[in-house]
């Protein structure tokens, strides 16, 4: 069952990479949040205390699946943000890149051949981390950068889950990472940047240089 969920998670990554509409990204983030909370529920049930489990699952559902995607979609609709342009045209190349990332991640985890490593988890997590980085590097909008960061964080959350049965502290720390950076990233800033620049293209932020 967990494997199936992880496979759906990986497919959502491919879908995300090929999409260009900002609202599609928020939908994928929502799906990923739901998937991750189910994975957490299935994987950690027997290993950690019930209160901790409830905390982790609730955090994942509320935060990753509801608050973040809905906040973003409201922002997109309210500010009438245009969609991503000229990042990866045609989309075929984007799919090709993500496929390459997944293959490389699989090869890596297969070759690591460590008895403590869940290959499926590791492949999906590493793929998500690199897809997130790819989005940050290739896309032009600040909001897409933050969503790329969220994908990266989803990957990290998955990776921490692979360890969660042995080290529950690590999963809680991952949640701390989630809350903390997100408060920093958009709670404070996307509104301010929007106010000042009336546009959220990253190219506008190029005043500081030597």
């Amino acid at each position: 069952m967990t494997n199936l969920l992880i496979i759906v998670f990986v497919i959502s990554l491919i879908y995300m990479a090929s999409a260009g509409r900002l609202l599609t990204y928020t939908k994928v983030l929502f799906i990923q949040g739901i998937l991750l909370s189910f994975i957490a529920l299935l994987e950690l049930t027997h290993d950690i205390s019930i209160s901790n489990l409830i905390f982790i699952v609730l955090e994942t559902v509320i935060f990753k699946a509801i608050v973040v995607p809905f906040y973003f979609s409201r922002l997109i609709v309210k500010n009438k943000m245009s969609n991503e342009r000229n990042a990866d045209n045609p989309n075929f190349f984007a799919i090709f890149k993500v496929a390459l990332i997944i293959i490389l991640a699989y090869t890596l985890s297969y070759n690591l051949n460590d008895e403590h490593l869940h290959i499926t988890y590791f492949t999906a997590a590493i793929s998500a981390i690199f897809v997130g980085l790819l989005m940050i590097v290739r896309r032009k909008k600040i909001i897409t950068h933050i969503m790329g960061y969220m994908v990266l964080e989803n990957g990290i959350f998955l990776l921490s889950m692979a360890l969660g049965s042995e080290l529950p502290l690590i999963v809680n720390l991952g949640i701390l990472l989630d809350l903390f950076t997100s408060v920093l990233l958009f709670g404070l800033f996307i509104t301010k940047i929007d106010e000042l620049y009336h546009s959220t293209e990253i190219d506008q932020l190029s005043g500081l240089k030597d």
Partner: peptide, 21 residues
């Protein structure tokens, strides 16, 4: 500067977290 600092610091923090994992 703040935006860049926060964003890159967050990536740095995430990377060191993967290191700890």
């Amino acid at each position: 500067a703040t935006w860049k600092y926060i964003f890159v610091c967050s990536i740095g923090i995430a990377m060191s977290f993967v290191g700890i994992l």
